[in-house]
Design a protein around this nucleic acid. Sequence first.
DNA 1: TAGACGTGGGC
DNA 2: TGCCCAAGTCT
Length: 344
Amino acid sequence: MIAKVLIQWHTKHGRKNLPWQKNFDPYHIWVSEIMLQQTQVATVIEYYQNFLKKFPTILSLANADIDEVMQSWSGLGYYRRARNLHDTAVMIRDSFKGQFPNRYEDLIKLPGIGRSTAGAILAFSFNKKYPILDGNVKRVFSRLYGIEGWSGLTLVEKKLWGIAQELLPDKSIRIYTQALMDLGATICKKNNPECPQCPLIKQCLAFNKKLTHLIPASKPKKDLPIMDTNILLIENAKTILLTKRTEKKVWQGLWSLPEVDSTDPRVWVKKNLYIHQSQIITQGTKTATFSHYKLRMHFTHLNVQIKNDMNQIKNTIWMPLEEIEGAALPSPIKVLIKQCYKLK
DNA sequence: TAGACGTGGGC
DNA sequence: TGCCCAAGTCT
């Protein structure tokens, strides 16, 4: 019954013109689903189009250099997704003869594809009867059935998956799945849901009990810890010194400004670079907020003149200023660099 | 299983 | 402004 109502609602009110809705190509669907993880539709659209232009087929992605993939992902965040995307493309090329798998057991083993993304690929691309459970769907079901408690709790999540599985229709899974997400995105919103427009208003427990503002329950909040770091913006003849972040932590695989222990930048510069002279241009602090901590970046912008026989430091490059914007750098670092050149 | 993992929209 | 959170997954 619920599925039928949703499918009918979708014919008039569903979203049908998103860039990844032009065909059912599993490669296209997969790329969009990965990009859309924890990322809003409006943000994804441009990245998606650029990405497919650069990597039109799964083979072109598999054969690409990871650095190129990171460059395309720069600014989107959660960079592990880009590495997983590339790894998965290689696996499909080598272990599946380039054919995108269409079985749940195969999909779930691929890096970056969890239960919900596997369900989305199966539903959208292959019209197979599998559930999804993203933020939209969690919100819709939580309200519809008056599920209390934060959806991150194991028990709550289990209930929601159960509902997702139970309500699945035998036919039109593709439309049904899209309808569910569209309802969550456009009507059953977190704040100020438009209940009068909702096709499920009569059977919605949260609406009938006037609990839509309390369901779904918010994630328990915690104060974000503050981390401090010292970074250097070293300029030499219109180029900037960048280091690749190879450690398995935030911004892995991206180029960034060197991070140093010393609060006096000249110590690091003297130790690592052969220079004629160095001159501090500006110093300051900029804070970047992540989902799990705040990073206070104490930066020093300085100008150096490198000797010809400078020593090469591992994983570093001097990047021309004009190439920074299009390179694989984290957003806050790009902003910081831009600000420094306004300040000057 | 709780924490790591980014960034920007919206209020 | 500051806070919540978005088409989640991995460890």
